[in-house]
Nucleic acid binder design. Structure first.
Length: 515
DNA sequence: GGACGGTGAAACTTCAGGTTGCCTC
DNA sequence: GAAGTTTCACCGTCC
């Protein structure tokens, strides 16, 4: 490249050249930031863009466009996009569609694109086949993943006669390594997902809860026939793992013998019949890891003395395996997290691990994650959250979904502990997490078409509850939330007066759309 | 002499992905 | 491990 500015990566040159051929390319990159920058580099070289409409749709995918939305829209104008888990699902969808119809010429993506989505390209460019991996810096990605990416090349449906998958090596040595590892190498053997403990726990409980297995002997028999056992070879070790799981499920009160007795490790392989308890069955239905369920239950039990605070509940769900990966503590986060910990220490529903415990890092991460949720339900904007927590809109979206689910699970488990106050708190919190709002907006969210933004507008206009909305005339409402929504809200209010659903008295509003 | 601004090198920081549930006062 | 970002020392210029 000309000038003193950084020379473009060969991957960028290749992508640019692909456009010249009148074809499309996907560039696979190892980080989200990298994908964004690559897209911008290519877009910059294109000159003026004409995809105004797509850019606008991407920008307006959310009511308050963030910095990320603006960057994406700016690229899209030139027919270039980036694609990763930080985008809103709507934006991802728009990009995939625009790529299929040819509006977008190049997508710079992380591995999100490699899985599942049907977006083949003439050329697939893999900028790097290494990726950061925890302890020892960058590491080669699995061969299977290489095949996933390379497999996106070529679009037989569109009558392409061939496709190109290009991997870029930084040196000759790397070139040989790539050839050997990915082109001539064999994919690593498929691994049974059962081997992962949380999955195994969930699976065993569900087998018992559905009555598919009724004795320890049947469990042994069942697992001996699985792919996992086939792979595992060491039957004795396999037995030990199953024993431990069985013992834990018994200890946690999720299973018992049919006579109400205790199930222990010794029951594996025996003929003592057992079954899931009511609690255990509910846990299985909720489909959460029994360990998480146990932790949530233990946390809830600490609730008896005082009503749980939102922060405490948010921290509790953030410590569940399902919430991973947690927000990671950055170098500058330490003080803020310590302050939050100090402030909320007495509220916490789980014990703080020892500072020397390897789990302590995760504990701090859970505090940061809880803090993020707390700000989310304090109506902080996505842009602010991006800045303060380095969490992108798409990640907010997925974290939020999991939080809702875990709060729902807790809500379902609480009745078993007769914690009726906690249930109320949980339900409120769940809706607040769902919408990202303060408590005062809850009554307004019952209406279809009213979310975070409109509810806040109504509230600011002095319309704070159903009574206010009933009194307000449509014209006023329309000025606040738009004509269509205003009419719809009025209709929802009116319907309630005309046709009273069975079991509900006139004027009494149920949970509306939360039901 | 001191404030300011530009520059480049060194130090520091960060790093992929995604499925589950839906009933109760 | 590598790329991007921030920090900092250094130097020249202007007042």
């Amino acid at each position: 490249m000309e000038g003193r500015t950084a020379v473009n990566h060969p991957a960028i040159d290749l992508a640019f050249q692909t456009i010249g051929l009148g074809k499309q390319a996907i560039v696979f990159v190892d980080t989200k930031q990298g994908a964004e920058k690559a897209a911008e580099d290519i877009a910059r070289r294109i000159g003026q863009g004409s995809q105004q409409e797509l850019a606008l749709r991407l920008l307006n995918a959310t009511s308050a466009p963030t910095r990320q939305c603006k960057r994406l829209a700016a690229c899209a104008k030139h027919g270039i996009a980036f694609h990763h888990s930080g985008l809103l699902p709507k934006q991802r969808h728009l990009i995939e569609q625009a790529f299929r119809d040819g509006t977008v010429k190049v997508i710079c993506a992380t591995t999100t694109m490699a899985y599942g989505i049907d977006t083949p390209a003439f050329r697939v460019i893999m900028r790097s086949l290494k990726r950061f991996s925890g302890s020892w810096g960058a590491d080669w990605i699995p061969t299977l993943e290489y095949h996933q990416m390379a497999g996106r090349a070529g679009r037989p449906k569109f009558h392409d006669t061939h496709g190109e998958a290009i991997a870029i090596a930084k040196s000759e040595a790397e070139q040989h390594e790539i050839e050997e590892r990915y082109i001539f190498g064999r994919p690593e053997p498929m691994e049974s997902k059962l081997a992962v403990e949380p999955v195994l726990r969930t699976y065993i409980l569900s087998l018992i809860a559905t009555g598919f297995v009724r004795t320890g002997q049947q469990i042994s028999g069942f697992f001996a026939r699985t792919f996992w056992a086939h792979q595992y070879k060491d039957q004795e070790k396999l037995g030990k793992i199953l024993e431990r799981m069985l013992a834990l499920l018994g200890q946690w009160g999720f299973i018992q013998t049919t006579h109400g007795g205790f199930v222990s490790a010794a029951d594996l392989g025996k003929e003592t019949p057992f079954a899931a308890t009511l609690l255990g069955r509910r846990v299985a239905e909720l489909y959460i890891d029994p360990l998480s369920a146990h932790q949530l239950i233990t946390g809830l039990q600490n609730t008896r003395k005082n009503a749980p605070t939102p922060f405490a509940l948010l921290q509790l769900i953030s410590s569940a395996l399902e919430m991973r990966p947690l927000l990671h503590l950055g170098a500058k986060d330490h003080d803020a997290v310590q302050a939050a910990l100090l402030e909320h220490y007495h509220e916490l529903l789980m014990a703080e691990p020892s500072t020397y415990d390897p789990a302590y890092d995760d504990f701090l991460n859970s505090i940061k994650t809880a803090r993020f949720f707390e700000e989310w339900i304090d109506e902080k904007g996505e842009d602010k959250l991006l800045e303060a927590y380095r969490i992108r809109p798409g990640e907010i979206h997925s974290k939020r979904g999991r939080a809702e689910w875990l709060l729902y699970a807790m809500e379902q488990l609480a009745p078993f502990l007769k914690l009726h106050d906690a249930i109320k708190e949980l339900r409120k919190l769940r809706v607040r997490v769902q919408y990202g709002v303060r408590e005062e907006l809850l009554p307004l969210l019952r209406f279809e078409g009213v979310g975070r933004v409109r509810a806040r507008r109504l509230y600011r206009a002095g319309l704070k509850d159903i009574g206010d909305l009933k009194k307000a005339d449509v014209a006023l409402l329309a000025r606040v939330i738009g004509k269509k929504t205003a009419e719809s809200v009025k209709k929802q209010l009116g319907q309630e007066a005309e046709q009273v659903p069975s079991g509900r008295r006139k004027g009494q509003l149920g949970l509306g759309k939360f039901e």
